[in-house]
């Protein structure tokens, strides 16, 4: 111990930069990319999406071959609009929403289960900025990963469908629309997951709520008799994709703009609730 250091008694009041939003964003991005489990989940999402698209391309090709020899099936196919191949690249989307939605839950719930939250919110006591930074990181990476995976899935499917003389144009407006809408949808689901993780603060509970919303509710609502549930089913997040990507409006579904609003509400409401609770509750 030295006595010469006593002249530092006039230690300044915090000099140097504080937690401005771009710094918090950088910090959240570091946290995001330094967890092996996150990287594994991202890689497996890409893998599953590409794999599913390849399988789907093969299945669709087989189906198209049968159709060629069967006038009845050909009629059924023509009634559907005929463009089977265009949805091949996005056929793995329900897995992507499950994995990336769970990732959204985990990234927030793990803050609380590991105690990391105490470090995070001691460094940035205005708690909303780390929350929003994390939300941006989660949504942007979910969007980009899904978009890139869909595109690669398309590239992988091309030679397969080509083999069956099916046409798949990745540059067509419908292909681009499917890619963008599905990627946005997965980003929305990841945001819902993160909000649930913040509200529940528990990984298993958050993931179960998300699975309930995305997979159980649509089936349950179909099974429960009554017009109310039939109507309510249209407003579930999973039901918004088809109106948003339909070539023309399908009866008994929402209009595209309605679907966009519904999906938006599914993001905004839980996120707002999560922010209020995060601000109010003790860490």
């Amino acid at each position: 111990m030295s006595t010469t250091t006593v002249d530092r008694k006039s230690i300044r009041n915090s000099v140097g930069p504080g937690p401005a939003f771009h710094r918090v964003l950088n910090s959240e991005f570091i946290k995001f990319r330094t967890l092996m489990s996150t990287l594994i989940l991202l890689a497996s999402t890409a893998l599953v999406m590409v794999g599913f698209a390849a399988l789907s391309a093969w299945g669709t090709g087989q189906f198209a071959e049968q159709v060629a020899n069967d006038p009845e099936a050909a009629a059924a196919m023509a009634a559907q609009g005929g463009d089977l191949a265009v949805s091949i690249p996005t056929s793995g989307i329900s897995f992507a929403q499950l994995i990336l939605g769970s990732l959204g839950v985990l990234l927030m719930s793990s803050e609380f289960t590991t105690g990391m939250a105490r470090s995070t919110f001691a460094a940035v006591p205005k708690r909303l900025s780390p929350f929003l930074a994390k939300l941006i990181v989660v949504m942007v990476s979910a969007f980009l990963l899904t978009a890139v995976s869909i595109y690669i899935a398309g590239l992988v499917s091309l030679p397969i469908v080509d083999n069956y003389d099916l046409k798949l144009d990745l540059g067509s407006s419908q292909s681009v629309k499917l890619l963008l809408v599905n990627s946005l949808y997965v980003a929305a689901v990841a945001a819902i997951g993160m909000a649930l993780g913040t509200i529940v603060r528990n990984s298993a509970g958050g993931i179960m709520s998300l699975v309930g919303l995305l997979f159980v509710a649509p089936i349950a609502f179909q099974l429960i008799p009554g017009d109310f549930f039939k109507e309510a089913n249209k407003y579930l997040p999973t039901s918004t994709i088809s109106p948003l990507t339909a070539v023309e409006h399908v009866p008994e579904t929402l209009e595209a703009w309605q679907a966009a609003l519904v999906l938006g509400a599914w993001v905004v409401v839980p996120v707002a609730l999560a922010m209020v609770l995060l601000k109010k509750r003790d860490v």
Binding site: N13, G16, G18, I30, K31, L35, E111, S119, A122, A123
Partner: peptide
Amino acid sequence: HKAPLREIGALLDAKAVHTSRTAYNHLLAM
């Protein structure tokens, strides 16, 4: 405070850390 981490440093809990992250990355993120 404008820069909380420069104002006050705290050890509140030995493992206020995501344990799957390395020590270096934890400090780097903070």
